[in-house]
């Protein structure tokens, strides 16, 4: 098991946003957490990334306890996060953005840069452009590329489809699957449940801080409750 969360409780902004959830992420899989606004998805992700300290519970990564560890420690364990709303650095060039992604690495990054440019040829054309001048889709590509620069074993993505055109969303999800095929485990949270469940091996439904349903992506897609609440069909 790559990531194991047991009975995680997190207080965030004065309320108990996550009320004791447990789930696992197997190696080389795509796992998705779906749920409405305020269900606690982002908080869960931010807690794993070390940006928020949990109240109680345990987070294990590759058998080691990483609960409450600092971001630096967690990033250097090859866990990386693509934050919500992309959060690229607008006044840094595309190349600088990518280099920041490899900030904690001391070794040579040329191969990784080439890998990212192969994945996103669009970024290669724009190395000297400022991040803020890219389109929404390109910014998302940059955010994913930046995360890949840290050579992640686990890549967590917070709503990669947010504010993007449907065609661009499909493109991004294809790339997510491609990255996964190359051996990166992916933990994805999404409001676009349809898209997320289609690519996911395992899905969890989060409601007001608790996991209410779990199953393979296909099972959840077929589930009546999920259909009614998240798929709108």
């Amino acid at each position: 098991m790559m990531l194991k969360i047991s009975d995680l409780k997190v207080n965030y902004g004065g309320i108990e946003a996550v009320k004791g959830i447990s789930f696992t992420v197997p190696e080389k899989s795509i796992v998705t957490l779906i749920g409405a606004n305020g269900a606690g998805k982002s908080t869960t992700l931010r807690t794993i990334a070390g940006l928020v300290k949990p109240q109680s519970g345990k987070i294990e990564f590759l058998g080691e306890d990483i609960t409450g560890k600092g971001v630096e420690d967690i990033v250097s364990r090859n866990i990386t996060m693509v934050p919500e709303g992309r959060k690229i650095f607008p006044d840094l060039t595309v190349l600088e953005n990518l280099k920041i992604g490899a900030y904690l690495r001391k070794d040579d990054i040329t191969d990784d840069l080439n890998y990212v440019f192969d994945l996103f040829p669009r970024l290669k054309e724009r190395t000297w452009q400022h991040g803020g001048t890219l389109s929404g889709g390109e910014q998302q590509m940059l955010a994913v590329g930046r995360a890949l620069m840290s050579r992640p074993k686990l890549m967590m993505m917070d709503e990669p489809s947010l504010g993007l055109a449907p065609l661009v969303v499909r493109n991004i999800f294809e790339i997510i699957q491609e990255i996964n095929k190359q051996g990166v485990t992916i933990l994805l949270i999404e409001q676009n449940a349809n898209m997320a469940l289609k690519v996911a091996d395992i899905g969890y439904v989060l409601e007001t801080g608790r996991i209410t349903l779990s199953g393979t992506g296909q099972e959840l897609l077929a589930n009546e409750g999920v259909k009614a609440a998240y798929l709108g069909t």
């Binding site: 990033v75 607008p90 006044d91 840290s150």
Partner: peptide
């Protein structure tokens, strides 16, 4: 310097990249 500029642009993202 790159890390400084990253902090200037977006603290949360910079922190998520592992910048102290």
């Amino acid at each position: 310097g790159r890390a400084f500029k990253a902090i200037r642009d977006d603290e949360v993202a910079a922190e998520a990249m592992g910048i102290n």
